[in-house]
Simulated assay, not measured.
Amino acid sequence: MDRLLKRAEFLAAAKGARSARRGFVVQALLRPDGDDPGPPRVGFTVTKKVGNAPERNRIRRRLREAMRLHGAEVARPGTDYVLVGRREALGLAFADLAADLRGALKQVHRDPRPGGPAGGRRKPPAVSGPSDDPSPGGTR
């Protein structure tokens, strides 16, 4: 697996599918690469709200190792993933963290629309208003 390094790549992945878990959030976006999709790419981020630098680094290391060991089973070629760490990642058993990662990756792959999977971000259903009914008194 390759790494995401540029801010634009992280921002693009944020527009794709997402799956939240106790210790992290996974964001995924299918790259429009054409015939050769290339290997999956992964980026890791932990905000300063989570804790001080050593805590953030520990969270990043745990997520990186879980992805290295278990993400290759589920990650798809041609997809960019961003793992956003949460403080709870420090308290979770590593086996639970890895199981959550596998489940989150499977969830973001459920909607294979081009331009990116649409995991949890869906448009609300259209609400029909009074202007939708052409008859003034209701049904005929």
Rank of each mutant, 00 (worst) to 15 (best):
A8N: 12
L4G: 01
G51W: 06
P39K: 06
P32D: 12
K106D: 11
R102Y: 00
M1E: 00
G129L: 08
A20I: 13
P77D: 14
E65L: 09
E9K: 06
P32K: 10
V50C: 09
G119E: 03
L92R: 05
A17S: 10
G16N: 02
N52G: 13
R61T: 00
R121W: 10
R110N: 07
V108E: 04
A17E: 04
T45C: 05
V50W: 08
A99D: 15
A118R: 12
D35V: 15
V74G: 03
R121S: 13
G119M: 04
A126K: 12
G115E: 01
T139K: 15
G129N: 09
F94A: 08
R56I: 08
G103I: 07
E65C: 09
R62L: 12
G91R: 07
R3F: 14
G78P: 02
E73M: 04
A99E: 14
P130Y: 10
G51Q: 04
V46I: 05
A14E: 05
R62V: 05
D35Q: 14
P136V: 07
R76C: 09
G85N: 02
A104L: 06
P124D: 03
L11V: 04
E73T: 08
V84H: 02
T47H: 09
F44Q: 01
P77C: 03
D132F: 13
P77Q: 10
A53H: 12
A8I: 06
L63H: 08
D80I: 02
G78S: 02
K123F: 07
L92I: 03
P37H: 04
R61S: 01
S135T: 15
P37D: 03
P117C: 07
R60Y: 01
L63K: 07
M67Y: 12
H109W: 13
V50L: 07
L63N: 06
A93L: 13
G120C: 06
E88T: 11
A28Y: 03
K123A: 15
M1F: 00
N57W: 11
V108A: 04
L11I: 02
R41H: 05
G38N: 08
P114G: 08
A8H: 13
G119V: 07
K123E: 15
A17Y: 06
L29S: 04
P114Y: 11
R31Y: 09
P125M: 01
F94N: 09
S128C: 15
G85Q: 01
D36L: 14
K48D: 12
A28I: 05
A126M: 03
T47R: 06
H70F: 06
H70S: 10
P130C: 11
A89D: 03
G138D: 11
D35L: 15
G115N: 01
S131I: 15
L83K: 05
A20S: 15
E73L: 07
R21I: 03
R22A: 12
Q107D: 15
E73I: 02
R102C: 11
P40S: 00
F24S: 05
V82S: 00
P136F: 09
R87M: 00
D2Q: 15
